[in-house]
Amino acid sequence: MVNLNILIVGVGGQGTLLASKFLGAVAALIGKDVKVSEVHGMSQRGGSVVTCVKIGDNIHSPLIDEGQADIILAFEQLEAVRWIKYLKKGGTVITNIQKINPMPVVFGQTTYPDKILDILADSDVTLHALDAFSLAVESGTSKAVNIVLLGVLSRTLPEIPENIWQDGLNAVIPAKLLDVNTRAFEKGRNYIEG
């Protein structure tokens, strides 16, 4: 595996921090250099949040800048396109199809763009779009959207052995929540598009 830059985007409160911690733990377990850049503070209150995970042999900057992400992992569809400039040409977008209205939309100052998924599908990117929210609910908690999406991501990274992902989960999820999250991860990993 050469360098891998994963940009995790979503809405404050959706669990992007845990997702990046999980990915970071996995990278460390396979013996790679890794840097993660997180967002804490103001934007955690329902704002647009972005977290960078960079895996490779010798990582300098913890940030993924414009045109540098191999994969965008989006927890919400509008966020997937908000950050699209950060994706390399021909990169991969994995997105939850859930919509969360930003306040300007809620107040009717503007509208939520439609056809986001169609436009993404038409663009020069590899797209995986799924209802991660429902899968999370099926596995036992709506809070596991993040882990479902990481399950999907894990399928696109065959270089990382399956047991490492489980070890990563064990490392970052508290024992009493491990079962639900393992189920959520499996749901994502076994998710078949169509």
Binding site: G13, S48, G67, V81, I84, K89, M103, T111, P113, S123
Partner: peptide, 21 residues
């Protein structure tokens, strides 16, 4: 200039400022 992926059609993403919970 960075080389970025482009959408087949422009989308104006409305801002998502932080809000009270």
């Amino acid at each position: 200039k960075p080389e970025s992926a482009e959408l087949s059609q422009d989308i104006q993403a409305p801002a998502r400022p932080p809000v009270m919970c």
